[in-house]
């Protein structure tokens, strides 16, 4: 009974910054004051975005990176229109996990549009951390995918751009849009039916 037009899932190992990315995108905030807390299970957020002159509801699943939820994560990317796989350019381990997700998505969700996202760009730019994942390797991996973004949830750099690209890509996908339209029509019908029934009930 999802009322979202597009389903987007965020994947990536723990601490790479998925939750921060969603909070920046949805609430335009970044919490540098509060200490890191891992996500438990998964969190769902929705936001309305415009593309091609029309409004779309997008639903975002922010999954937990902790290994203990790994098998659960499959249920979040089932049927996802797009997946953003996050890694930290300054953490080789997070890149190794990214390759795992790529493989999973290729076999389980072929239709899913996949994006790579290198997080915490501000740290890289400031020189506080050293890049561990070589750029040419990232480039090689991004080739078969829908895009690669380097974002900072702290400054907001490239965050809006990432999600806008996803929505634009979805809107440009004729097959996907046919399904979305069908869903909308059906949901509208259901709502009408529900309202009609409810009215009847109230009049009694």
């Amino acid at each position: 009974m999802s009322r979202c037009d597009f389903k987007i899932v965020l994947l990536g190992s723990e601490h790479v910054g998925k939750t921060s990315l969603v909070l920046r995108f949805v609430n335009s905030t970044f919490n540098s004051g509060t200490p890191y807390q891992n996500t438990i299970g998964a969190a769902f957020c929705a936001k309305t975005m415009r593309s091609n002159g029309k409004d779309f509801n997008i639903g975002i699943w922010d999954t937990a990176g902790s290994e203990r939820y790994e098998a659960m994560t499959r249920m979040y990317y089932r049927g996802a229109h797009a997946a953003v796989i996050c890694y930290e350019p300054c953490c080789l381990e997070s890149w190794a996990r990214l390759r795992h997700w790529l493989q999973e998505l290729r076999t389980v969700e072929e239709e899913c549009k996949v994006y790579l996202c290198g997080t915490k760009k501000d740290l890289l730019d400031s020189g506080m951390v050293k890049r561990e994942v070589p750029e040419d390797i990232v480039a090689t991996y991004s080739q078969g995918l829908r895009g690669h973004f380097l974002t900072s949830s702290k400054t907001g750099e490239n965050v809006e751009e990432l999600f806008q690209k996803i929505v634009d890509d979805c809107v440009a996908d004729a097959k996907l849009m046919r399904n979305v339209e069908e869903m909308r029509v059906q949901l509208l019908k259901e709502e009408e039916a529900y309202k009609a029934k409810h009215k009847e009930y109230c009049n009694c």
Binding site: L23, Q37, I40, G41, A42, A43, F44, C45, Y69, M72
Partner: peptide, 17 residues
Amino acid sequence: NLVRSSESFKTAESWTP
């Protein structure tokens, strides 16, 4: 204990085992 220890429940709807 879970609820009290998890700030993240305040910012979004969660779905968790």
